[in-house]
Amino acid sequence: MTLPQRVRLVEMAPRDGLQNEPGEVVATDIKIELIERLARAGLTHIEATSFVSPKWVPQMGDAREVMAGLQRAPNVTYSALTPNLKGLENALEARVSQVAVFAAASEAFSKKNINCSIDESLARFEPMMARAFDAKVRVRGYVSCVLGCPYEGEITPRQVARVAKALYEMGCFEVSLGDTIGVGTPLAARRMIDEVARVVPVEHLAAHFHDTYGMAIANLFAVLEQGVAVIDASTGGLGGCPYAKGASGNVAMEDVLYLLEGLGIETGVDLAAVVETGEWISGKLGRESASRVARAMSAR
């Protein structure tokens, strides 16, 4: 068994965690404090917001204000999701460190989520990639539904590899593979990584697993053994998917850190500080943290 010596963690709570939060829009100052707390805990890659239409994603309507209000730490990458050229231009104006684009491995999900086919979505990214390249801003690619789709059911590894390869060849420095509805199991995750790694070097792949069936940690261990050394996670287990009924949030950052510490893998992140931050934001949202590790540590 060969495991990476160090894993880079990408924090999703401020964007993926809060974007579908029901009820009132989370206050801008709370979002800013969340991001700054995460940076102080040692997280060096934080997806801070999304430059999307407030009509479609009200929680992200203050993207400019969030980026403007941040006290930016020098060693932290503050990224933003940019679904189209207008969003990218707004993100560049706001001086984001990095941007992200997203495609799906499922035709049905792509049509439901962004109202176009997979190939149409990839074609839309080409002028965005050129603009980001001109601005010297790196682009990360996301592929959703890599281990299952709420509309199509099973997704073949070959479908995932095709989309991942297109994003990588287009210029995405890294491709994050998302189990959007959290249906994956370790064997399925391994098979998917095996197929994708044939067309995208494994050092350019990230795992973004949701925990709907409680399998995210097991799936992460499986892909760590294959050399994946970048993991997306969300403090407090915040987030879900509005297009996937019953889909719980991203795997909790606290649970991932506990796994990695137990495996002797370095992250540079302070677990206790992340637990404290997860409890703080969960309290602000009026709920208990979804992290099992956080609940266990708090009960001690």
Rank of each mutant, 00 (worst) to 15 (best):
M1A: 12
Q5F: 11
Q5D: 15
V10E: 14
M12Y: 00
A13I: 05
L18K: 01
G23W: 01
V25L: 07
V25R: 11
A27S: 09
T28C: 11
I32S: 04
R37I: 02
L38G: 07
A41I: 10
L43E: 08
I46H: 01
E47G: 04
A48P: 03
F51C: 05
V52G: 04
V52S: 01
S53K: 07
K55V: 12
K55D: 10
W56K: 13
P58H: 12
Q59L: 04
Q59A: 01
D62L: 03
R64I: 04
V66C: 03
V66M: 02
V66S: 04
M67S: 04
P74A: 13
V76F: 06
V76Q: 00
Y78F: 13
S79D: 08
S79H: 01
A80W: 08
N84D: 12
K86M: 11
G87R: 00
E89R: 12
N90K: 08
L92Q: 00
R95L: 13
R95C: 13
S97M: 15
Q98D: 15
V99G: 14
A100H: 05
A100C: 13
A104T: 06
A104R: 06
A105L: 05
A105Y: 06
E107P: 12
S110Y: 03
K112I: 10
I114D: 04
I114W: 07
C116K: 13
C116V: 06
E120G: 08
L122R: 07
L122Y: 05
A123L: 12
A123T: 10
E126G: 06
P127F: 08
M129E: 11
D134C: 10
A135P: 06
V139F: 00
G141L: 07
C145W: 03
V146S: 02
V146W: 01
G148L: 12
G148K: 02
C149W: 01
G153T: 00
E154S: 15
T156D: 11
P157G: 11
Q159A: 15
A161P: 08
R162C: 09
K165M: 12
C172S: 03
F173M: 04
F173N: 09
L177R: 04
G184P: 00
P186K: 09
A188E: 12
R191G: 15
R191I: 10
D194C: 12
V196L: 14
E203P: 09
L205C: 01
F209D: 01
H210T: 08
G214Q: 09
A218L: 07
N219H: 07
N219T: 02
V223K: 07
L224P: 03
E225N: 09
Q226H: 09
G227D: 03
V228C: 04
I231D: 05
D232H: 03
A233Q: 02
T235N: 02
K245T: 11
G246K: 08
A247R: 00
A247M: 01
N250H: 08
A252L: 06
M253Q: 12
M253N: 08
M253L: 15
E254H: 02
D255L: 00
D255P: 05
L257I: 12
L257N: 08
L257H: 11
Y258D: 14
L259M: 15
L259H: 05
E261P: 11
G262D: 10
I265P: 02
I265M: 02
D270H: 10
V275I: 15
E276Y: 06
E276R: 13
E276C: 05
E279V: 14
E279T: 12
S282C: 06
G286S: 05
S291C: 10
R292N: 14
A294D: 01
R295F: 04
